[in-house]
Simulated assay, not measured.
Amino acid sequence: MQSSIANPTEVLQQLHWRYATKKFDSTRKIPDDVWQTLEQSLVLAPSSFGLQPWKFFVVTNPNLRQQLVEPAWGQTQVVDASHLVVFTIKKDVNTADVDRYIARMAEVQQTSIDALEGLSNMIKGFLSEPPFPLDVNEWSKRQAYIALGQFMTCAAMLGIDTCPMEGFIPAKYDEILGFAEQGYTSVVLCPAGYRAEDDRAAARPKVRYETQDVLQYI
């Protein structure tokens, strides 16, 4: 059994330290080695069936980022943060996407596609005849939020600030960044970088209900 790698006290300390950063220091950039770890936290994010119905766009073009401020209701985090990640989903995931995933699994795990036929049929059956009412795009969006959570937690462990943002107009982002032509649509934003020294929100106590109010053993 693998022993604990992270110190529990330090993990809690970083989770208390994390907050939705309202003002980033635009002069500070995330070092390349740290960003590469955060990049891989997205690549390694879990999803239902492992299907990964998403793509993560890191907007680096300053002119594009400036255009994204207005459809984000004027929130300047999208330009002030070191990095801006736009979480998108593949629209209308279908059997072709399953075939692509199964082919990748066969490649990575060094097995045949035929050996994975049962898994392939199960996933396709879930998408075509789900056991509950299913809007496939809403399902994909829930997967994207799993990736967002992993990204934010890993960032906190590395001392990197983040700000999850639903306050933007997805259709405008899709238009400006050309997502529709690629078959994707934006779901949520997450600027990442370093908090500004004068961000007053950083000093506010974190408001959470007591443990017993939100967690129950049964």
Rank of each mutant, 00 (worst) to 15 (best):
Thr162Ser: 15
Phe132Thr: 07
Phe151Tyr: 13
Glu129His: 13
Gln143Thr: 05
Ala155Ile: 02
Asn121Thr: 15
Phe151Arg: 01
Ala147Tyr: 07
Lys141Ser: 10
Ser140Tyr: 10
Arg142Ser: 12
Met157Asn: 07
Ser120Leu: 00
Gln150Val: 10
Met152His: 06
Pro130Glu: 10
Gln150Phe: 05
Phe132Gln: 13
Thr153Met: 08
Ile146Gly: 00
Leu148Ala: 03
Leu134Glu: 07
Leu134Asp: 11
Glu129Ala: 12
Pro131Ile: 07
Glu138Asp: 13
Arg142Asp: 07
Pro131Met: 05
Asn121Tyr: 07
Phe151Gly: 02
Ala155Tyr: 01
Trp139Leu: 10
Cys163Ala: 14
Pro131Cys: 09
Ser140Ala: 15
Arg142Phe: 01
Met122Gln: 15
Leu158Arg: 01
Pro133Cys: 10
Cys154Lys: 08
Ala155Phe: 03
Ala155Met: 04
Pro133Asn: 11
Leu119Gly: 08
Gly149Ser: 14
Thr162Pro: 03
Met122Leu: 14
Leu148Phe: 00
Ala147Thr: 06
Asn137Met: 06
Ala155Pro: 04
Cys154His: 14
Ser120Arg: 13
Lys124Ser: 08
Leu127Lys: 07
Arg142Tyr: 02
Leu158Lys: 03
Gly159Tyr: 00
Thr162Phe: 05
Ser140Leu: 10
Ala144Gln: 02
Gln143Gly: 06
Trp139Val: 11
Gly125Ala: 06
Ala156Thr: 02
Gly149Cys: 11
Ala156Met: 05
Glu138Asn: 09
Thr153Cys: 04
Asn121Cys: 07
Gly125Glu: 08
Ser120Glu: 10
Leu158Trp: 00
Gln143Pro: 08
Asp135Pro: 03
Cys154Ser: 10
Gln150Arg: 13
Gln143Ala: 08
Gly149Leu: 09
Lys124Asp: 11
Ala155Gln: 00
Gln150Met: 12
Pro131His: 10
Ile160His: 02
Asp135Phe: 03
Ser128Ala: 14
Arg142Gly: 03
Ala147Arg: 03
Asp135Ala: 04
Asn137Asp: 14
Met157Ile: 01
Gly159Met: 02
Ser140Asp: 09
Lys141Pro: 01
Met122Tyr: 12
Thr162Asp: 07
Ala144Asn: 04
